[in-house]
C-alpha cells in the first residue's frame, strides 16, 4: 500500500489546472494519456487495442461455446445467446423492417455486442490493477478512435444499403423536397457519424471520469450508485448506437421515394 502511495504521488504532481499541488494517495485520473505503440511510422493506442482484443475474444469465445453443439431444444448458454440474438434481431427488425432486416443483423448485432461488451468490461473489470507504462486500460469505446471507426462503418453501411437498394436514385432524396435543402442533407451525412461517435465516446468517458473522481474523493461505497448508473448508461449507449445504426440503414433503404409510399 505504501509503495503504491509513493508511486502514485510521484506520478501525480500534475494536478487539475496545475493549481492544486496535492498528492493523491489512492488513485489517479489519467485523461488523454495513451500507451503508444509504434508500428512503422504509425502510432496506435495500445491500451485500446488490448482491451478491444479482449472484447473480441470474449465475443468469439461466447459465440463458439454457444454454437459448438446447437440443439433443437436449447439449453444453458445456447439459450442465453439465442436470447441475445433475438434481442438484436428485434432491434434490426424494428428499425429496418421485416423484409430487409436479415441481411443487416450481423452488422447491427456486432455493433451492439461490441459496444455493450466493451462498455461493461470497461466498467466491471478492475483494469487499474494492471499497470501500463503510460495511460491505463479502459473500455475501447472511451477512445475517440474506436467510436469514430464504428460510426464511419455505420456511414459506409447506410450508404451501401441505400445505393444497393435504390442505385443512384438514392441521391435523389437530397433534392427531392427542395434543391434548397441539399446542403442540409449533405450536412446530415456528416452529423450522423459525428453524433454517433461523440455520443458514445462522451458518455463512456464521462462515466469513467465521474467514477474515477468519486473514487478519488471517497473510495468506499459512495461511488457504487454511480457505478451502477454507469452500467445502466453503458447498456443504454450500446442499445442507442445499434438502434441508430439500424435506423440510418433502414432510412437509407426506405428512402423517401414515391414507390414506398404506395406500400403503406
Amino acid at each position: 500500500m505504501v509503495n503504491q502511495l509513493l508511486l502514485c504521488s510521484q506520478s501525480c504532481f500534475q494536478t487539475l489546472g496545475q493549481t492544486l499541488n496535492f498528492e493523491t494517495p489512492l488513485a489517479a485520473l489519467e485523461v488523454g494519456k495513451h500507451f503508444y505503440w509504434h508500428l512503422g511510422g504509425l502510432e496506435v493506442h495500445g491500451q485500446v487495442l488490448i482491451v478491444s482484443w479482449i472484447v473480441i475474444g470474449v465475443l468469439v469465445a461466447a459465440s463458439a461455446i454457444a454454437t459448438q453443439n446447437v440443439q433443437r431444444i436449447p439449453a444453458g448458454f445456447q439459450n442465453f445467446m439465442e436470447y441475445a440474438l433475438e434481442y438484436i434481431q428485434g432491434i434490426a427488425k424494428d428499425q429496418i423492417g421485416e423484409k430487409e432486416y436479415r441481411n443487416w443483423v450481423p452488422l447491427v448485432g456486432s455493433l451492439f455486442l461490441f459496444v455493450f461488451v466493451s462498455n461493461w468490461l470497461g466498467a466491471l473489470v478492475p483494469w487499474k490493477l494492471i499497470k501500463l507504462p503510460e495511460g491505463e486500460l479502459a473500455a475501447p469505446t472511451s477512445d475517440i478512435n474506436t467510436t469514430v471507426a464504428l460510426a464511419l462503418i455505420v456511414s459506409v453501411a447506410y450508404f451501401t444499403a441505400g445505393l444497393s437498394r435504390r442505385g443512384l436514385g438514392y441521391f435523389s432524396k437530397y433534392v427531392q423536397a427542395s434543391p434548397a435543402l441539399l446542403p442540409l442533407w449533405v450536412l446530415e451525412d456528416f452529423t450522423k457519424p459525428l453524433s454517433l461517435s461523440f455520443r458514445l465516446f462522451g458518455n463512456i468517458l464521462a462515466d469513467e471520469l465521474v467514477v474515477g473522481v468519486l473514487v478519488l474523493l471517497v473510495p468506499l461505497i459512495v461511488p457504487l450508485p454511480v457505478m451502477i448508473l454507469g452500467l445502466f448508461t453503458s447498456a443504454i449507449q450500446a442499445l442507442i448506437f445499434s438502434t441508430l445504426a439500424a435506423a440510418y440503414i433502414g432510412e437509407a433503404m426506405e428512402g423517401h421515394g414515391e414507390e414506398e409510399h404506395e406500400d403503406h
Binding site: 508500428l39 504509425l42 502510432e43 496506435v44 493506442h45 485500446v48 487495442l49 478491444s52 482484443w53 473480441i56 465475443l59 468469439v60 459465440s63 463458439a64 454457444a66 454454437t67 446447437v70 440443439q71 433443437r72 436449447p74 445456447q78 445467446m81 439465442e82 440474438l85 434481431q89 436479415r102 443483423v105 450481423p106 452488422l107 448485432g109 456486432s110 455486442l113 461490441f114 475501447p140 477512445d143 475517440i144 478512435n145 474506436t146 469514430v148 471507426a149 464504428l150 464511419l152 462503418i153
Partner: peptide, 30 residues
C-alpha cells in the same frame, strides 16, 4: 486520431465476419 482508427475499423469488420460465421448464421438457422 491515429492509426488506431483504421485498425479498429478493420478488426471490427473482421469481428463482424467471424460473428456472422460462428454466431449469427448458426443460431439464426437453429
Amino acid at each position: 486520431f491515429d492509426a488506431t482508427l483504421p485498425i479498429m475499423a478493420a478488426q471490427f469488420l473482421l469481428l463482424v465476419a467471424i460473428l456472422n460465421a460462428i454466431f449469427f448464421k448458426p443460431l439464426t438457422k437453429a
